[in-house]
Amino acid sequence: MGEQLKNKIMAKADIGLTPKQTEILAEMLEPLLADEFLLYLKTRNAHWNVEGPDFHTVHVYFEQLYTELENVVDEVAERLRKLGHYAPATMKQYLSLTHLSEQGDGKNDSLSYMKNLLADHDAIIVYLRECIVKIGNEVEFAYGTSDYLTTLMEQHETTAWMLRSHLK
């Protein structure tokens, strides 16, 4: 977690977790927030710039995806606040925290965008699994965050399935 954010931890949230436990959770959620925001931005880019014979259908689908991701970004940030931490909220912070690549392959067709977005959804699914295991091993009683991450993982799995099915 960046030094700027460590110094901005809110008043202790008295929710049955120790400050150390909430810090472990925040250190997992901050990169997740960065990943979700970057994926949101990349999906917006796909929506704005897709071209080809399937333009309208894919344009509408990408809009559905970025709308869902917009809500996810807000929920992850709010989960950080519920734990007594501030959410990172600058591009500089996101780019330093994310597991994803900002770059695509430069093509504007639907298949290229879908392949790139699928890779990002898959990467987030892997990271979420790692977080859920870590919570189970290191952060006793963090049921709310664990449940939230499990539900979020299932949402990403559904989107990944849809993208993967379209690419076959």
Rank of each mutant, 00 (worst) to 15 (best):
S112V: 06
H59I: 02
K134R: 14
M1K: 02
A11E: 10
Q103Y: 13
T90F: 11
C131I: 06
S96M: 07
V72I: 14
N45K: 03
K42F: 00
W48V: 01
A26C: 10
V60P: 06
W48N: 04
V60G: 04
G106R: 09
S165D: 12
K42D: 01
Q155H: 14
Y40S: 02
P31H: 07
K115P: 11
T67E: 07
E138G: 12
Y113W: 13
K20N: 08
Q93C: 10
A142Y: 03
E36S: 14
L163S: 06
V133F: 01
S165W: 02
E68L: 07
I132S: 04
L128K: 12
T151M: 12
Y143T: 06
Y127G: 00
A160W: 10
L41D: 04
Q103F: 06
I125N: 04
D14G: 00
L149V: 10
E70S: 08
E138K: 15
L5M: 13
H156N: 01
A13I: 04
T150H: 09
E51L: 08
A123C: 11
V60R: 05
Y66N: 07
A77V: 07
H59T: 03
Q21W: 03
E68N: 08
L32Q: 05
L83P: 10
M28P: 03
V58H: 01
E140K: 11
L33R: 02
N49V: 04
D109I: 00
M162V: 15
S96D: 11
D120E: 13
E36G: 04
W48K: 08
R79S: 06
L152P: 01
E51R: 15
A119Q: 15
K42S: 02
